[in-house]
Every structure is written in structure tokens, then in C-alpha cells.
Amino acid sequence: MSRSFAAELSKLVRRPASWLLLGITLVLSLVFTYLLPYAALAGGTGGPNSDRTLPMLLPDRLVGNSLGGLPVFLGAIMLILGVLVVGGEYAGNTWKTVLLQGPSRSEVYAGKVLALAAGALVVVLTVFVLGAVSGALIAAAESQPVRWPSAGDLLTGIGAGWLVATMWAMLGAVLAVALRAVALPVGLGLVWMLAVQNLLAGVAAPLLDWVAEAQRWLPGPNAGSLVATLGAPTETPGVAAIVGGGQAALVVAGYLVVFTAVGGLLLHRRDIAG
């Protein structure tokens, strides 16, 4: 398995799409978390809540600011990464080539899972570093004191972000295995994350009690609840404390285990041909 992990990690690093997705993640995080709010503040167009804008951008809000995009937008990018890592073997018709080298399907799949987990950790850490630099620069520009979250809060935030990011990546992986493709899993995954779950939360849940109750067990709302309890701005799409942080962490972890297990089972039992 270690050889499969090393091979998958090397492929992930060498794949240009991985770097493109990381770049998009950082640009989205920087622009919507820091640049646009600060530009509105500096230009005097911050709106009725402008007095709250600056404190939200300072380093002590690093954890919440870094996690806010994971339930929807940054999570969607992780889903795409998961599809590419697993579905790329179907698109390139390379499963047989990989398996002829000696490793079993389980070993190759485990290597892909570990590579996705490592990639998710790198993404989360990079977002945190970008947020720390941005918050420190804004504090210096506005002559504000620089106060950082405690080490415990940072580790908790990074762990929660890693959990959510890996869950979305494994959803992409299981869709890729189930559909044996790249384009369709990406399309269906994005429709669910960017449209369906927002419609459920904004339209169906206020009207139907059973939808509101079902939301308490869906991956998106639990991811949003987890990051909300850690300080993510509730104005961010997908961020809302529907359930407590403990339940949210358990549900997200449960989905991660289920997605991983289902993907491995499907890969083991089904024809590898696309």
C-alpha cells in the first residue's frame, strides 16, 4: 500500500489540474474572505454592518475565516479533485495498466484515499497560511493589534477543515467509481452541492418539517454546522448551526467512512472498464 500511496501522491503532484484547483481555492478564499470586504471597508461602502467588517478580518478570526468556504464552494473544488484522482483512471483507460504492475485493487484504492487525504490537508493548511498573512497585513494597515487564536483552536480548526475537505473529496471519488467517468460525476456533484442542498435549506426546509429534520443528517448542513461552531461567518452560503458541533463532526466523519467504504466495495466488485 505504501508504494501505491507514493505513486498516487506523485501523480497528484504532477497533475496540472491539482495545482489549478489549489490556485482557484486560494483565489476564492482571498477575494471573498478578505479582499472584497476590505475593499468595501476602505472605500466607505461597507453597508450597514461596516462597523463589524474590520474585526472580522483580523488574525483572531483566522479559524472561522479559513473554514467558511468548505461547506459549499471550496468543498466543491475538493469534490472535483476526488473525481479527477479516481475517475481519471476511467477517462484514460489506465486501470488495467496500473493493476498489471502488481498491486491489488484494494491497494491502489487505499493509495488513492491516502493521497486525497494528504491533498486535502495541504489545501486546508494553505488556506490557513493565506488567511494568516492576509489578516496580519490588514491589521498592520489599520494599526490594529495582532492577536492570534490559541494553538488548541488552530489545531481544532485545521482538523475540522481536513475532515470536511476529505469527506467532499471522497464523495467525488465514490461518484467516479459508481459512474466510471469524470464529467458526469463532476456535474452531478456540483449540482448537489451548489444547487440542490441550497434549495433544500432555503426553500424546502422552511415549508416542510420533514425536510428540515432530514437536513440534520445530510453532509452539507452538518459540514456547515461544524464550521459555524468554530467561528465561520454565518453570512457565508452553507454555514449555519443547524446541529451542535459534536453531532456535526460525527456525521461528517460517518459520511467520510461510508463514502470510502462504498467506493472500495464498488471498485472491488465491478468491472474496471469505463
Score class of each variant (00 low, 15 high):
residue 82 G to Q: 08
residue 110 A to M: 14
residue 79 L to K: 07
residue 108 V to K: 04
residue 90 Y to E: 07
residue 119 G to L: 13
residue 122 V to S: 11
residue 115 A to V: 03
residue 97 T to G: 14
residue 106 S to Q: 14
residue 89 E to F: 11
residue 90 Y to V: 05
residue 94 T to P: 03
residue 79 L to V: 02
residue 98 V to Q: 09
residue 116 L to D: 01
residue 89 E to G: 11
residue 112 K to M: 05
residue 117 A to G: 12
residue 82 G to P: 01
residue 87 G to V: 12
residue 124 V to I: 14
residue 109 Y to T: 07
residue 108 V to I: 09
residue 98 V to K: 00
residue 108 V to D: 08
residue 91 A to W: 09
residue 111 G to R: 05
residue 111 G to I: 01
residue 109 Y to M: 01
residue 122 V to D: 02
residue 115 A to I: 05
residue 117 A to T: 13
residue 121 L to H: 02
residue 123 V to T: 15
residue 80 I to W: 11
residue 94 T to E: 10
residue 80 I to D: 04
residue 103 P to M: 04
residue 87 G to I: 05
residue 98 V to T: 15
residue 112 K to N: 06
residue 120 A to K: 10
residue 114 L to Y: 09
residue 103 P to C: 01
residue 92 G to K: 10
residue 111 G to P: 02
residue 94 T to I: 08
residue 114 L to D: 05
residue 79 L to F: 03
residue 117 A to E: 09
residue 96 K to Y: 07
residue 102 G to Y: 01
residue 86 V to C: 03
residue 104 S to C: 09
residue 87 G to H: 10
residue 83 V to T: 11
residue 118 A to S: 15
residue 117 A to W: 10
residue 84 L to R: 00
residue 88 G to W: 11
residue 112 K to C: 00
residue 122 V to T: 14
residue 108 V to F: 06
residue 82 G to S: 01
residue 112 K to Y: 03
residue 82 G to T: 07
residue 124 V to C: 08
residue 113 V to Y: 06
residue 105 R to L: 02
residue 120 A to R: 09
residue 83 V to W: 05
residue 119 G to P: 05
residue 109 Y to L: 00
residue 81 L to Y: 10
residue 92 G to P: 05
residue 95 W to P: 05
residue 121 L to C: 12
residue 110 A to G: 13
residue 83 V to A: 01
residue 79 L to I: 07
residue 110 A to C: 11
residue 93 N to W: 07
residue 101 Q to Y: 10
residue 89 E to Y: 11
residue 102 G to T: 01
residue 123 V to K: 07
residue 90 Y to S: 15
residue 103 P to S: 06
residue 89 E to A: 06
residue 114 L to G: 01
residue 123 V to A: 15
residue 86 V to K: 06
residue 111 G to M: 03
residue 81 L to E: 06
residue 109 Y to I: 00
residue 103 P to T: 02
residue 85 V to P: 08
residue 108 V to H: 00
residue 91 A to R: 15
residue 106 S to K: 12
residue 115 A to T: 07
residue 101 Q to P: 06
residue 119 G to C: 12
residue 90 Y to M: 10
residue 88 G to H: 06
